[in-house]
Simulated assay, not measured.
Amino acid sequence: MQSNFKTVITSGPLVLVDFYADWCGPCKVLAPILKEVKQDLGDMIKIVKIDVDKNQKISNRYQIRGVPTLLLFQNGTLVWRQSGILQKNDLIKIIQSYTP
């Protein structure tokens, strides 16, 4: 998964990674928000979900201590991260601030 992850975060100009867990209540709240963000932004953003329980190496590498944690990569470089739930409009504003 490690080499796949590198491929994923460089697969688009903007890639949002959602570190989540199946047992996490706030993660379940965030899931439909991320769907709406993807619908609104379309090809501008790629959204990837990473289960922290199944991908502990990657979670440790990025020092994920709580879920949900969102990481935004621009051309493979980490440019923003935040833990917790964000509202759709706030998340869209953050993503758009990294678009040319």
Rank of each mutant, 00 (worst) to 15 (best):
P13M: 07
I92Q: 12
S97K: 04
D22T: 10
S59A: 13
T99V: 08
I92W: 06
A31Q: 05
R61E: 15
Q74D: 07
D51S: 08
A31T: 10
L41A: 13
L91D: 03
I58L: 10
L41F: 10
G42Q: 11
P13H: 13
L71S: 04
D40F: 12
D90T: 01
T69A: 03
A31E: 14
Q96W: 05
W23R: 10
N89L: 15
D18H: 14
G25A: 15
V79E: 10
G84T: 07
V79G: 02
E36T: 09
N89P: 02
M1Y: 14
M1P: 06
R61A: 08
S83M: 12
W23G: 05
K93G: 07
N4W: 11
W80Q: 00
F73E: 07
C24S: 13
T69C: 02
G12A: 14
I33E: 03
F19I: 02
I50A: 05
T77C: 11
G12L: 08
I64W: 00
K49I: 06
N4R: 03
K6Q: 14
Y20P: 01
I47A: 13
K93P: 09
Y98W: 07
R61M: 07
F5S: 01
C24Q: 12
L30P: 09
D53R: 08
T99N: 15
C24Y: 12
R65L: 06
T10C: 11
N89F: 15
S97D: 10
D22G: 06
I47L: 09
I47Q: 08
Y62T: 01
D51T: 10
V79A: 05
P26G: 13
L41Q: 09
K28R: 15
L14D: 12
E36M: 04
V79D: 11
W23H: 10
L86H: 06
V79R: 03
M1T: 07
I58R: 00
K49P: 00
T99C: 14
L70I: 08
T69M: 04
L16S: 02
M44R: 10
T10R: 09
D53S: 11
L16Q: 01
I64V: 06
D51K: 02
